[in-house]
Simulated scan of single mutants.
Amino acid sequence: MELSKCGHDERLPLYQQVRDEIFKNIQCGVWLPDVAIPTEAELTKHYGVAIGTIRKAVDTLVADGVLYRSQGRGTFVRRPDFSSSLFRFFRQVSLDGKVSIPTGNILSRTLVLPPEHIAKSLKIKPNEITIRLERNRVLDNSVVLTEEIWLPESLFASLSDIELTSFGNLLYPFYEKQCGLLVASATETLSIESAMPETASVLGIDEGRPVAVIERVAYSYDKTPLEYRISRGPAETFRYQVNIS
């Protein structure tokens, strides 16, 4: 792929125009996660601007968490890390007393029309097919979290006939490997509900007990919704922490 050149609103500061074009190259997959982008000198030559403009544009993307600098190696596209984000909220302790991240088991995969609110969150039409996954998170042979996941079939068609055991523990790297889709950001909504019979049975708790619910919409770099996920776990293991300064 060739690098795009500045073509944004010229009323924007020049560094912002360059910043947007660098970001566009990341969105389009010209520069991949954990791969170095061109040097400041190379970017200066390509965009025909002063090195100070390039430096400010790159600084903005570093501050936004899109890029990171490695001393003596260059500037790289940051790979978002969601591997333990859910467990900011659910603290799971194994039998030996260690804080652990449960493993994930895909139980089922179906092609379904999504509920209206999920179709809206995924920005698809209600009559568009989604791949629905059911997954449990297991620790010491006990289910500690249950999850429902919806994926637009138009984007994830290659997952329709893959063995369920092939999905692995971390889904986002799997999406990238199998479908070429990189999750770059997500929004999460937290709530509490009473455990319905099926959820209570899976989690091994009494019906009606409080359950913490995390609804997540995951996005690509260009903010295309890729995944809608609902995770449920016993409220007794739920912890919320925020630092205020």
Rank of each mutant, 00 (worst) to 15 (best):
L43V: 11
H117F: 12
S100M: 09
A57H: 00
R239A: 13
I101L: 13
R11D: 13
E236D: 15
E236Q: 12
G65V: 05
E198F: 05
D59V: 03
R137L: 15
L86F: 11
P152E: 09
V183Y: 01
L95H: 11
E188I: 10
I131T: 03
P210K: 05
D206H: 11
S194F: 06
R91W: 08
P38Y: 07
V77N: 09
A218M: 06
R135S: 02
P197W: 02
V93H: 07
V49Q: 04
A184F: 13
N25M: 15
F23Y: 14
E176I: 02
E40T: 13
I192C: 04
E147I: 08
F76Y: 15
P173W: 00
V30Q: 10
L113G: 09
L14H: 01
L95D: 14
S166M: 10
P33Q: 08
T44S: 14
Q71G: 11
T189G: 07
T237F: 06
R78W: 04
T44F: 03
V93G: 10
Q178V: 05
P102V: 07
F90I: 06
S245F: 12
L155N: 03
L139E: 10
V30F: 11
D140L: 07
Y172E: 11
G7S: 13
V77K: 04
I214D: 00
I149D: 03
I149C: 11
S194T: 08
S245D: 11
I26M: 05
T130Q: 02
A57N: 02
S245K: 11
A157C: 10
A195Y: 01
S231P: 03
E42I: 08
G65D: 07
V30P: 00
L203H: 02
Q241K: 15
D59A: 14
I26C: 03
V202C: 09
L67M: 03
K120C: 08
R239Q: 15
L61V: 04
T103K: 11
R73H: 14
K223A: 11
G208C: 07
I149Y: 08
Q178P: 00
